[in-house]
């Protein structure tokens, strides 16, 4: 490395140093510490007689206890069910909306803005609005159902309906995903559609044989992001149901949060976080493995 190159290298490092320091202090070190604490009995507030924080190495005890914990399996099941309901629904709705918004119609920009707007609403505000929409007596859904003679359920107040209601609500924020799908749709070469038309393909054939295969890398990207997001779901159930009724919406991340900050078991919560990471990593790896069969990249 010449002295000029070295100088440039140092300058470059200086320029990226704010990010680098932030990454080290706020990401890398906490991640490393959480791995260490997952093998410790550590509570954040626990002190020794000298007033110093105590983290006691307990080996794999946290992991052993975790796999015997009923709440671990309950929250895992609830989170899995939520993902099963909200992930495909979210993808179908967002692809459907993107296809509609891609059609050359008058006021297209206005529709696109309307669809995108809800994703800008803060999560607490939208949770409050939806709590009223789901309200058993005065809510929009039950009023609507009442007009056709159906006595609606208590939604988030009913243990059978609470989880599907939350999954339904998750569709509210599909605006971001729709924008990404739209970009993907506009990237599909027109000549492919022309060729398909010449070959006599109708709208449905064009959708399945041109649009979806060409959109598959974008679908795959959104699938991975949604998978990570839904398996970490926290804010909505925490605000809207607090995990109830009867823990029917008690999610993994809420349990993790409570273990760390309410029950003061940071070591146990760290172990939970690492198990969650491994589960997400495993499912992401599985999605990558299956992607060879259904994701088609242009130029390959």
């Amino acid at each position: 490395m010449s002295s000029r190159e070295r100088q440039n290298f140092v300058k470059g490092l200086l320029f990226v140093s704010p990010w680098l320091i932030g990454f080290l202090v706020f990401t890398l070190v906490p991640v490393g510490l959480s791995l260490y604490y997952s093998f410790c009995d550590f509570s954040l507030i626990e002190r020794d007689t000298a007033g110093k924080t105590q983290a006691i190495w307990v080996g794999t005890e946290n992991y052993r206890q975790l796999f015997q914990d009923r709440e671990f399996y309950r929250t895992l099941k609830n989170t899995g069910l939520y993902a099963i309901l909200s992930l495909p629904a979210g993808m179908l709705v967002s692809i459907g909306l993107a296809l509609m918004l891609n059609a050359p119609i008058r006021g297209q920009a206005i529709y696109r803005t309307i669809i995108f707007l809800p994703s800008l609403v803060p999560v607490v505000a939208s949770a409050m609005v939806w709590m009223w929409l789901f309200n058993a007596r005065l809510g929009f859904f039950n009023q609507l159902l009442a007009t056709i003679g159906i006595d609606g359920p208590a939604w988030i107040g009913d243990k059978k309906w609470a989880l599907p209601a939350l999954a339904m609500m998750s569709l509210w924020g599909v605006g971001n995903t729709v924008v990404i799908y739209l970009a993907g749709l506009q990237d599909i070469p027109r000549d492919l559609y022309e060729a398909a038309e010449i070959d006599g393909a109708g709208a449905i054939r064009r959708l399945f044989n041109v649009t979806l295969p060409m959109l598959s890398p974008v679908i795959f990207f959104n699938l991975i992001m949604a998978l990570i997001g839904t398996l970490q779901v926290f804010a909505l159930p925490f605000i809207m149901t607090g995990g109830g009724p009867e823990r029917s919406t008690y999610m993994y991340t809420q349990y993790l949060y409570e273990k760390a900050f309410a029950y003061l078991q940071m070591g146990y919560a760290s172990a939970m976080a690492w198990v969650q990471l491994l589960i997400i990593l495993g499912l992401t790896a599985f999605a990558f493995w299956t992607s060879k069969r259904w994701v088609h990249y242009q130029g390959r």
Binding site: D41, D48, T49, Q54, E61, Q65
Partner: peptide, 18 residues
Amino acid sequence: DAHLKRQALRQVHAGTAS
């Protein structure tokens, strides 16, 4: 019981405990 077990483990590993 899990709490007691933790306390016992703390004593074993730390020689001291809360």
